[in-house]
Design a binder for these strands. Structure first.
Lengths: 153, 153
DNA sequence: AGGCTTATTGACATTGAATAACAATTTCTT
DNA sequence: AAGAAATTGTTATTCAATGTCAATAAGCCT
């Protein structure tokens, strides 16, 4: 448990998850998870693999690819967007949910949250009789710098 | 021009677009566009290719892959989601913008629109000084049938 | 603690969507 | 009608993601 707020760590959550599924806790899985949760950055398989290698650690890409669906099932990470032929992920456990405002030109990303989305979810729940699990709101636009560039050209 | 509402057709829009870009209008492009806009369904490259062939027409997949970015640039279609290793698209011109509520289990899709998203966009525009171009709101949940199934198991 | 079952690993091969290369063809301007 | 240049289909290529499989190791049971 985390001493400050009594909230179990990602690793603890995941070990619990593995036990429930009759799966095993391995050093490789630990390495990958620790790397993922060491920052609050988005990641893709390739960048994750590289940063693990740069720390002098060693896991195969196959193990990363095999772990990702488990982390998603355990509600620790989620897909955020698909770009340049690769899926990108971010971790969600322990972080406020947020949406993404992305610049179409320079690819920069701003994070935001808005409680109106939760209201929309409630309405959908009633209207369609769904059990809402999550949402993904992606707003695409031009940042102020890229607006200037396109105006001057 | 469409006789009823005076609105140019997708083909006209696209020919205009091609001319602006110094590009050429070809029978292959016409075939693909007509097929895309003959229904209001979502599509992916493979299903599109098949339905064109089923009509006895013939274009290469390469031409489809080459056309899609142009249609996106011309604001006629957009990516909706990536699933099963394939990008899925829908056409947007001449249709009210809508968002998607998707069942995680059975993959069924409900379409909805909510004006609160436009309000969120306005706020983002001001707050981040972005020029907002579009958004993609995907809500994922369990439809009523799939809820029943998961309860009984 | 040691043994046994079976999940997991890494290496390698494979799949398949998407892109690139290129010669043959076709559009479109003049 | 001719010529420059874009587009086509074919073929080859890329590369993310998945499958295969023998070797290894986790974790339960006694």
């Amino acid at each position: 448990m985390d001493a400050r707020n009594n909230k179990p760590s990602e690793l603890e959550i995941f070990r619990e998850f593995l036990k429930r599924q009759g799966m095993r806790y391995t050093p490789e899985r630990e390495t990958i998870i620790k790397e993922i949760f060491s920052t609050h950055e988005h990641f893709d398989v390739d960048s994750l693999y590289i940063s693990i290698r740069q720390k002098g650690l060693r896991v195969s890409k196959a193990s990363i690819y095999r772990l990702i669906p488990l982390l998603i099932k355990a509600n620790l990470i989620e897909e955020v967007f698909f770009e340049n032929g690769q899926m990108h992920y971010e971790h969600i456990y322990g972080h406020e949910h947020h949406c993404h405002l992305r610049c179409q030109e320079c690819k920069r990303i701003e994070e935001f949250s808005d409680k109106r989305v939760a209201q929309i979810e409630e309405d959908l729940q009633r209207r369609f009789n769904y059990k809402i699990l999550r949402h993904k709101l992606e707003v695409i636009g031009l940042c102020s710098e890229c607006q200037k560039k396109s105006n001057s050209s």
